[in-house]
Simulated scan of single mutants.
Amino acid sequence: MGKSALILIDMINTYEHPDAELLIPSLRKALPHVVRLLERARARGVPVIYVNDNFGEWRSHHGEIVQAALAGPRAELVRPVQPDADSLFVVKARHSIFYETPLAYLLSQLDVDRVVLVGQVTEQCVLYSALDAHIRHLMVTVPEDAVAHIHSDLADAALLMMERNMHATITTAEAVELCVVD
């Protein structure tokens, strides 16, 4: 097994969007699992990469995105997973973490061949990102208890598609193997 990277998808968020109230209950269940996985990754020296929507703020950088989320009405959902000094941050504008971002190049520079995807939304950004990782010949792991959904039926279908069509490993956060190769 090669080198892993933990990728947090859209976890830095103000939750001021139309689907937020549908998303938040699932996020509250997933958050403790994301936090524990994040702590494990940091302790092992596994690269932690935040790939986050810029919310249409084209002049913003990652510090401003984090500050806005921490100043927002749902800061308690952001504070436990906020980036530390060693975290990497990629800004995205669309659903996939790879679409017109430097993420593929970054992963190649880090010699990563396995991505662990956590965050939101299972049936949207996580699904599309898993597909794009798969077509880039990356191994994909999705801990089903560390991703949040808007619609549970679509999330279940998305997880099944990732497993069957993309050969993703669907597991729990506790069972995720975080590999570091020096």
Rank of each mutant, 00 (worst) to 15 (best):
V142Y: 09
L88W: 11
H95K: 02
A158R: 07
A157M: 10
D132I: 02
I170S: 08
L70K: 03
L77C: 11
L110K: 03
I170G: 05
L127N: 09
I65R: 12
L103T: 03
D111V: 05
A93Y: 07
Q124L: 10
F89H: 15
A155T: 04
E163N: 06
V118W: 00
V118T: 14
L138Y: 15
Y105C: 05
V142G: 13
H151L: 10
M162L: 07
V91I: 15
Q67D: 15
E100Y: 11
G119V: 06
E163G: 01
A85W: 03
R74T: 04
S96V: 03
V140C: 05
Q82P: 02
V81G: 00
G119H: 08
D145E: 09
P102Q: 09
I150A: 14
V121S: 12
M139S: 14
A93P: 00
L107W: 02
V126C: 08
M166Y: 15
V147H: 00
A104M: 11
A71W: 01
F98H: 06
P143F: 11
I135A: 04
T101F: 10
A146C: 12
D111P: 00
A158H: 05
L110Y: 06
D86H: 13
A148T: 04
R164H: 11
L154C: 09
H167W: 09
S129H: 08
S108T: 03
V147A: 02
D111Y: 13
P102S: 05
P83Q: 15
D145R: 04
A71H: 11
A104S: 09
A85S: 14
R136E: 15
L160N: 06
L110R: 03
Q109K: 12
T172Y: 06
S96R: 02
A69S: 05
V118Y: 00
T171L: 13
P80A: 00
H151P: 01
E144L: 05
T172W: 13
V66M: 04
